[in-house]
Amino acid sequence: MTPYAPELRFARAFAAEAVAVVRRIRADGFDVATKADHTLVTTADHEVNRQFIEQVVARFPGDGVLGEEASRLTGGPRTWVIDPIDGTQQFVLGIPVFMVSVALVVDGRPVIGVAANPSTGETYWAEAGAGAYLDGARLRVSRRDGTTVPVIVSGGGAQPVSPNGLDADALLRVHTAPAVSSTAQRYPWPTVFSGCKVAEGSWDADLFGHTTAHDVAAVCVLVREAGGTVTDRSGADQRYDRPVDGCILSNGLVHEHLVRHWRPARACPAPPGRDGVSGG
């Protein structure tokens, strides 16, 4: 048995339950509100987040929970991280790329990651040291390095600028050879969906330009266990139980190029308090 086998079983079982909840709420109708940061939140986001906290408290009472909509932080070494729906805007619009995302972070490092797509029924999962899988099939990152054909890079942040500056909120086709120009088009790809595409080898990298750990904790494990590389904006390791300094997820072959050319990291806000319950 692998070190975190019980936790992986729990995370996969919860993801399956969450998929059923999201499908039911979408079929029955849901409320939509706008949060202070101008992002959307729905009945489904709140319900999945609430059920996850309840189940973690019942199964792993000493563990904390860091969620997008609500948290229960304990100050201990183990923190579950949940994004109840990554891609709420896509959920509202019916674009089938929104995902339920769950991770277990131990001493700041993600060791379990599960991401499930309610629209397709696909479930990705990974455990540190045990590989990454899509519905039982082993995942491997791509081997494209951008020297002869452009690599596919998603994301980049919320402030679109020059595609060659690697900071467009878009799907980029990037050449690592400096003589070849890059192109970009805007697509509605949420971070978890994009990270899964990197892990399965369909895309080559994802650039995450924000500070929210719940967006990247699960796919961090998936990409690493599929043979890829994950760092902050500057190419360094970081914790995923507190705000992050962006995130670069790649096949490893293009990672240094992306670190070198992406816009310098912005200052990361101070970590939140380590106890109590907070809304997200």
Rank of each mutant, 00 (worst) to 15 (best):
E47D: 11
R26T: 06
A158N: 08
T123N: 02
A16D: 14
T147Y: 01
F208N: 03
A128M: 07
T88E: 06
D45R: 06
R140S: 15
I112Y: 08
F208V: 03
W262M: 14
P264W: 11
V223R: 10
P61K: 08
N251H: 02
G113Q: 01
G273N: 11
P61G: 07
T43G: 04
A168V: 15
H214G: 06
V198M: 08
M99E: 12
P190F: 02
P190Q: 07
D206T: 15
R233Q: 13
Q159V: 13
P96Q: 09
P271I: 09
G146K: 03
D37L: 12
V106D: 13
V65S: 13
V111F: 02
V259R: 11
R144C: 02
R50W: 01
D232V: 09
S182V: 11
I25E: 09
T88N: 11
G129M: 07
S182Y: 00
A205S: 11
F30K: 07
N117L: 10
I152F: 01
G76E: 14
H214V: 15
V259S: 05
C196T: 05
F52G: 10
A199V: 08
A115Q: 15
A20V: 06
G279C: 12
G279Q: 11
D167M: 15
Q185F: 14
G276N: 10
V277L: 09
T34S: 12
P150F: 04
V41P: 00
R144H: 11
Q89F: 08
D275P: 00
G246E: 04
R274N: 03
G246M: 02
A213K: 09
E47C: 02
D245I: 12
T2V: 06
A130G: 04
F98K: 06
T176Y: 05
T43D: 01
L172N: 07
R143G: 11
P190G: 07
Q89Y: 06
E256Y: 00
D245H: 12
L40G: 00
S101G: 04
D37S: 14
P110G: 04
R266L: 15
V161W: 07
A265M: 06
E122L: 14
D145V: 04
N251I: 01
R59C: 00
R138S: 07
G136C: 02
G29I: 12
A15T: 09
E68L: 07
F30V: 12
S181M: 02
A270P: 06
L93G: 00
D237M: 12
P269K: 13
G228P: 12
A270V: 14
R266S: 14
A158D: 10
N117C: 13
G157I: 05
V216C: 11
W189T: 10
S101E: 01
Y124T: 00
G280D: 12
H210V: 03
S162Q: 05
V41M: 12
N164G: 14
T231M: 08
G131F: 08
V180H: 14
D145H: 07
L222K: 03
P150R: 12
D169H: 10
R260W: 01
V56W: 05
G87M: 06
L207I: 13
S278E: 13
S119D: 13
L93V: 01
I248Y: 02
A103T: 06
G64C: 07
L166Y: 03
I112P: 09
L172S: 06
F91W: 01
H261Y: 14
D135A: 09
V102R: 06
